[in-house]
């Protein structure tokens, strides 16, 4: 397993069979995938009207899962909720094995799971590529406008002092740049290596494992770091008047919300889910997240409120 993935343009590889093959080989090299598929999770019930919905261990993801759960229930499906599952290598095998039927995903990260060398591209291109790398039995539905992607974010004060608007402007900053992020940011294509290559910017990662959460934000506000990887749907950006540096070279993968589903999700179910996804704008997602972290509301209440407001319930 190579850690440092060489940057490679997805566009060139798109449509070429090598991409799918590479991903398949990669998948089978994962020593744990098969065992996991047999193990974890409860059985998802076998009636065609029963669906098991999972979510990542991320409050925002759980809210999106709950949006789908409630519209499916309104359509007459029986829904088993299995929220807050840790990681891709845990829940994707469960989706393949059919113990989960639906989970909200993010375009770029999902593609990168199957093709670790996937470089950035437009959301449409990534969606197309996903169609080819997903294992048999899994498919992605249409993706949302709402996106929750990694970012190089700084305080408005730091941005104005150094006249920063885009990541490339950091090259002119004459001090050591530290970015608070989950530790895997260090080995992502849009991490320090990508920043150096694409924008000629040197950054070091300060690992904070709350995935851009309050600890990361606080370390930025306290000046422990100059930059932070805060997901773009995080309400903390607006709340603290933070500046998300632009990425004109599209170094960072787009992370539009995209439901990944098993074969048990039929046309009726898919239409209901896509009805939700079609209405989920970027601002909506930030607002839903705000209700979770600021109002501390439960995902069920947040979801039913939004669905009612949009006329989906």
């Amino acid at each position: 397993m190579t850690i440092h993935s060489t940057r490679r343009h997805l566009l060139g590889a798109l449509g070429a069979g090598s991409l799918a093959l590479g991903a398949a080989a990669c998948g089978s090299s994962d020593p744990f995938s098969e065992e996991e598929a047999e193990g974890g999770g409860s059985d998802g019930g076998s009636g065609s009207g029963a669906l098991t919905i999972g979510s990542q261990a991320y409050y925002s993801n759980e809210i999106i899962a709950e949006l789908c759960a409630q519209v499916l229930e309104a359509e007459g499906f029986t829904v088993d909720r299995q929220y807050q599952i840790g990681q891709r290598e845990v829940y994707l095998p469960e989706l393949e094995a059919g113990s989960l039927d639906l989970l909200p995903e993010y375009l770029g990260n999902l593609l990168q799971h199957y093709d670790s060398e996937a470089a950035s591209a437009s959301p449409e291109e990534i969606h197309g590529a996903l169609g080819e790398v997903l294992p048999a039995g899994l498919r992605v539905l249409a993706f949302a406008e709402a996106s929750d992607q990694d970012s190089y974010t700084t305080t408005s004060e730091f941005a104005s002092t150094h006249s920063l608007t885009a990541i490339g402007d950091l090259a002119g900053v004459d001090e050591d740049l530290r970015i608070a992020a989950n530790s895997e940011f260090d080995v992502r294509p849009y991490g320090p290596e990508g920043a150096k290559e694409v924008y000629d910017v040197d950054v070091t990662v300060v690992p904070v494992e709350d995935s851009g959460g309050p600890l990361t934000v606080q370390s930025l506000l306290d000046g422990d770091v100059q930059l932070a990887d805060i997901y773009t749907a995080d309400p903390a950006i607006a709340e603290n008047d933070l500046v998300v540096l632009a990425d004109p070279e599209s170094m960072i993968l787009p992370q539009n919300v995209v439901p990944v589903v098993s074969e048990k999700v039929d046309e009726t179910a898919a239409t209901a889910i896509e009805g939700v996804i079609a209405q989920l704008s970027a601002d909506d997602l930030v607002e839903l997240n705000r209700q979770s972290v600021v109002d501390q509301a439960s995902s069920a209440d947040i979801a039913s409120g939004w669905l009612t407001e949009k006329g989906l319930l």
Partner: peptide
Amino acid sequence: VGSGGLGRYIFQGLGSQ
């Protein structure tokens, strides 16, 4: 939570598979 030690290898390995 932002410090070093051998945990760096463990969490980074976990996060990046």
